[in-house]
């Protein structure tokens, strides 16, 4: 226990870095994922094809591969970063966007087709149909799975620790190395601080779920 209290500043710093990584990647993934979902249901075949391939590839390969691509392959293609953190954000958002795209797409499909037909028949363009009619109605079904994806994102961000990004897991590794006799306590501390981030998200998910149930 002592080792946790002694290293509280490090844990705190790690927590903030993890929060930062997750928040930035989460926001990028939400935007990209929604755009991918829009492409998936668009009338343009090329967009549908691109979105489908993207989602299937990223969703069905391990996150570590996305990290290797961002950290090793991208620099060889001329995309260089000052910090590994940028590579981590790219990998996490690219990977998470695929899951968000699937959640949003299933939400879009849960809205009866007649809603979109009615919107089109009063002259709305594709973007308006989606943003004014379909997505607001899809949101209700989409929010609970979206929060689950964000919880997974917080945990997935620990992979960045293995790529020399100092976040909660990265600091945890450092502390474990420095305190070889108290590895167990250090790791329990790391787990505790992850729970500090993910449990509130879970509570938020169930609260939103209840709210949505009343709104119907």
């Amino acid at each position: 226990m002592e080792v946790i209290i002694e290293n509280l500043p490090l844990y705190w710093e790690g927590l903030l870095r993890t929060l930062f990584l997750s928040a930035v990647s989460g926001i990028i993934a939400l935007v990209v994922g929604t755009l991918l979902a829009a492409a998936r249901v668009s009338p343009v075949a090329a967009l549908r094809g691109f979105s489908t391939v993207y989602v299937e590839v990223l969703r069905n390969t391990p996150l570590t591969i996305a990290f290797f691509f961002a950290a090793i392959v991208l620099p060889r293609l001329g995309v260089t970063f000052q910090q590994f953190e940028v590579a981590a954000i790219i990998a996490l958002s690219a990977y998470t966007a695929a899951f968000i795209a699937e959640a949003v797409r299933s939400g879009v499909n849960s809205v009866p087709i007649g809603q979109a037909e009615a919107a089109r028949s009063i002259g709305m363009k594709f973007g308006q149909v989606l943003s004014l009619i379909v997505l607001p109605q899809a949101l209700r079904t989409v929010i609970p799975p979206l929060i689950n994806i964000l919880i997974a994102l917080v945990k997935n961000s620990s992979v960045a620790g293995a790529f020399f990004v100092l976040e909660l897991f990265g600091y945890g590794r450092q502390m474990a190395n420095a305190n070889g006799d108290q590895v167990m306590a250090v790791l329990l501390g790391v787990a505790f601080f992850y729970l500090l981030l993910t449990v509130p998200l879970g509570i938020l998910a169930s609260t939103v779920e209840r709210k949505v149930a009343i709104a119907r």
Binding site: P112, G114, A119, I122, G123, M124, L132
Partner: peptide, 30 residues
Amino acid sequence: RADVGMVFQSFNLFAHKTILENVTLGPIKV
């Protein structure tokens, strides 16, 4: 399409909008 009114068998009113908004949405947005 804006020049062609359509009335459906299953009404298809926008479920998340009020009656008034259902009618004003087209004129305002389109």
